[in-house]
Simulated scan of single mutants.
Amino acid sequence: MQDQRNAELLTRAHHGDQRAWRELVDRHIRLVWAVARSHRLSPDDAADVNQTVWLILAENLTTIRHPERLSAWLTTTTRRESLAVLRLRGREQPVDLWDSVDEDEPTPEDLAIGLDTDSRLWRAYTTLTDRCRQILHLLAFAPETPFRQVADAVGIPANSLGPTRGRCLEVLRRRLARMEVVR
């Protein structure tokens, strides 16, 4: 069943074939989870997004225009659902810095340095092209996702993903180095 194309699986799932539906889910579940978790959702919120995405797919089995790009469709749908959850629930997690100090926890100074480093990294990241941001995002937050699936999600050939990722990382390194000099 693994060599079946998405179009055939979507059609069979629409006609009630549970094996086809399971194959679709098995092929893409890690991608959907990875995209949801990459938005820093709680495990419960990520589970809700995951469930919603599969429901949306079930409702749209016959309306997917490009079945060969199902990974990209699922990535976009998961991203949209994750952002909707974030809008509803917010991202802030209150932390009491004055609570009992634990020697293993970072100090406020460590947190400030980490935030500064993170801020510089994200500023450099936002200057990358959309394709580079997509590739680095998926590979960073879903390292277990097969290259072929990541390549499908961003719309490039699988054998181009490694070199493209390398070029994207090199651009990111140069921009971070430039920011360090400017500081």
Rank of each mutant, 00 (worst) to 15 (best):
Y125T: 06
S38A: 14
E109G: 15
S38R: 05
D110N: 12
A46C: 05
Y125G: 03
Q134H: 10
V150Y: 01
L83Y: 04
L41M: 02
H66E: 11
R79L: 08
P157Y: 02
L128V: 11
H137S: 09
A46I: 00
P146M: 04
A72W: 09
R133W: 15
S100A: 14
V150D: 00
V32K: 01
T62D: 05
T107S: 15
I56M: 08
I156E: 01
E103A: 15
R123D: 12
D110W: 06
T63R: 13
N159L: 15
A124P: 06
D118G: 14
R133G: 08
S160M: 12
E105A: 15
P43I: 07
D45K: 02
V32Y: 01
V25C: 08
D48S: 05
R27Q: 05
P106A: 11
P146L: 08
V35E: 05
T145M: 12
R79Y: 04
F141Q: 00
G155W: 06
E144M: 10
R30S: 07
V150T: 02
R37W: 01
T126A: 11
T127K: 11
V25G: 05
E81C: 12
V154P: 00
P43V: 09
E68Y: 13
L115I: 09
W122T: 10
R123W: 04
A72E: 11
D44N: 09
W21E: 02
P146K: 06
L24K: 01
D96F: 10
P157R: 10
I135M: 02
I29T: 04
A72C: 10
I156H: 02
V35C: 05
G155S: 05
V53P: 00
W98Q: 14
T77C: 13
A58R: 13
D102P: 09
T63Q: 10
H39T: 02
I29M: 03
